[in-house]
Design a protein around this nucleic acid. Structure first.
Lengths: 222, 222, 222, 222
DNA sequence: AGGTAATCGAGACGGTACGTCAGGTCTTATG
DNA sequence: CATAAGACCTGACGTACCGTCTCGATTACCT
């Protein structure tokens, strides 16, 4: 975010040294993020409080405020820190199959601890635009980019229509599960699959009988 | 909602009946709900506070707590009170046209003051399941019911496939705009239309060339 | 001070009832004042902190702020509450004797716990004029009034000059011990006596040899 | 004061001596003292804060802490630095006249910026004995010494009684104006004069009618 | 010239207290 | 009973300074 900027003012400068005063303690940063993540995960939002994070992390409140002036920023960073490694993208077969695989992966993420945090981030975002921006930028966009790539491969291979409205399509695929998350409704794989089928069914180059769509799209063959 | 029940636990008597003590003042109720709605609308969430509502409505805090023990309940009730009349359902031509009309109507609602409130309700709902339930029950369900009816008419008339997964379809159509609302992204009619086109395109009984879908579906004719 | 005003807005109204809501708890008030007094007495100034008072008294910080928006006000009121009964005025013989008696009494007060508090009040007063005013009004004035009466009796009886500049005289008699208090210097009775002798020696109607003043002035007799 | 000692623990050598490391920057010292003085003068105590001094002087906080571990020490040194030159002692006529002249001079000082600082020093002194000591040593004592000299001259010339209790007398003359300062009461020359008259009236070798004292003491004549 | 030893600036960090805001609960009196 | 008014406790907020600490960059003197 901007701590990076703070730590290393000149983005370019790869010179190892530069910061004047005492260097920022990474241990402190880690421990704050971890505490934030845990609290958000356990008590979810209600328990997620700067005081709480300070208490659990053993870091002074003031220090937290120094680096994360907004609670949302803290939540978001804690989230990214903790879930970044979890984001694995699927291999490749047909575009539809890949798409569904990624959706299932995403659903799994939402079902887990990360789901609670996303709710927290969105809630915080209601009061602070920057948090929302960070969320979109740091979480949604990457996923959309990847999904876009998958779809593009589908178009290129002739599996999918070339006139897809990608933006709309991605919304139709990803929004529902996030809204469900916020509404506390379950997000199981079956549901995700049926959504994907329903939405993708009109996107194939060769419109097929509904039943067929269910079993992944046959390339251009037929 | 349930204040009726609370005021007069003697289920049977809905007649003008005799209440033991001083009867609940409707003026008070109204003024609280109006204040809540205004605050939520103006300051949105940050300003929406029991204290604030009490101050603006001129009602004692205690009284508010008595009737709306959860902030979410207050928000939700204020929301319904104020927006119920605004919910107009579209006439009828083709199912697709009706669907798009309703989606646009809904989008308009979200763009307006009601949008702010919905965010508030969802946020409150994160801490209080009852609020979420009330939201789903009182706002989402009616809309879905109506949409379902539209789609059913489409199926019955042969305009749409008979094997639609309605639930998934409705999610695909309605969730994206609500998520956009929460993310602070604009919800204009053009976007809504392109979403509807994208999603509905695979739902027609007679798969059409993409361009054709754009101009509303021709009934069964061709 | 003004809590009185707050509790009973209409000064005149001695009618037993009037305050709307829940009446102020006197237990709370007492316990805050006591805690304040103790802290001031023990740790003197450094330890005298709203948080500390709250902790020791078991009263919520907010409640303290409600009634004593300035720390000085709290110190002052605690001081008066606790020392009011201690202020005993001397009997009567000759004016000079009475005067010295009162001075000794005052010195004793300053030597005790009250001394610490007076320092606190004066310190707080440096930032808040109202505190200083309360101190002058509530502590200094009463003492001066009494001293004035003593001197007046002395004049009436012919013991003292009729042309005394009372104001200056009182300053000369009372200020030194208060300044000593602030400077942490001891205030023993011998010192007080020698001061009184020195200052009063020029105030007698019949100027006497220095030594004679020491043994209190003989009324008009000689 | 003692920074010398601190800088060069090798007590003996006050000669240009050998300092191992980088010598202390006098520019820094000056600028800190000036900033301290200004802040104390302008905002009086509330604004007088190490951070503030650092900010205004452009000197690092650490550096300030190194040389003035107590805020009081800083205040005191800044005070002396800035007011030392202002301390002018009166010439000579009669002892009483000299005395009054010096009192007026002192009053003038207290009325000015120095007054604010003295308050600050005394306040700080409440928490730190060294500050009080420095204040007494560096400010009060010099004045008292001079006053003592004046009175001694008066005694020697026969103008004043030889049995004066100097210590008490000085207290009676100097304390009142300092206490007034702390209480925020005005210290005008007229008031100072009347105090001096009242107190000194009993100190003359030849007791006089009150009116006469008012117009300065007649040397030895009568 | 290099080493040693100090000052000085910059800033992170853990703390304490501040004063405020909101949430809830309670105690009274009145309608 | 429902209301209004308000006292009270709780918990968190965000801020201001404090005093300590770690760095690196100077700036001397002393080999």
């Amino acid at each position: 975010m901007d701590k990076a900027t703070r730590t290393r003012p000149t983005g370019a400068a790869r010179s190892p040294a530069k910061a004047p005063g005492r260097p920022r303690s990474d241990a402190t940063r880690q421990s704050v993020l971890r505490a934030a993540f845990e609290l958000l995960t356990e008590g979810g939002l209600a328990r997620f409080t700067i005081e709480g994070v300070a208490a659990r992390s053993g870091v002074a409140r003031t220090t937290i405020y120094r680096w994360w002036p907004k609670k949302g920023a803290l939540a978001m960073e804690g989230f990214l820190e903790a879930t970044a490694p979890e984001i694995r993208f699927p291999k490749t077969t047909s575009a539809v199959a890949d798409m569904k695989a990624q959706l299932r992966l995403c659903a799994k993420l939402l079902r887990g601890r990360a789901g609670r945090i996303i709710c927290g981030v969105i809630v915080e975002g209601q009061t602070d635009p920057e948090t929302i921006a960070a969320f979109i930028e740091g979480y949604l966009q990457p996923r959309r980019r990847e999904a876009r790539a998958i779809l593009q491969r589908g178009i290129d291979s002739g599996e999918m229509r070339p006139d897809l409205d990608m933006s709309a399509l991605l919304s139709a695929l990803y929004s529902p599960m996030h809204l469900r998350l916020l509404l506390g409704e379950p997000i199981d794989d079956a549901w995700v699959d049926s959504l994907a089928d329903t939405v993708l069914q009109g996107c194939l180059a060769t419109p097929t009988a509904p039943a067929q769509v269910r079993t992944a799209a046959p390339p251009r063959s037929a």
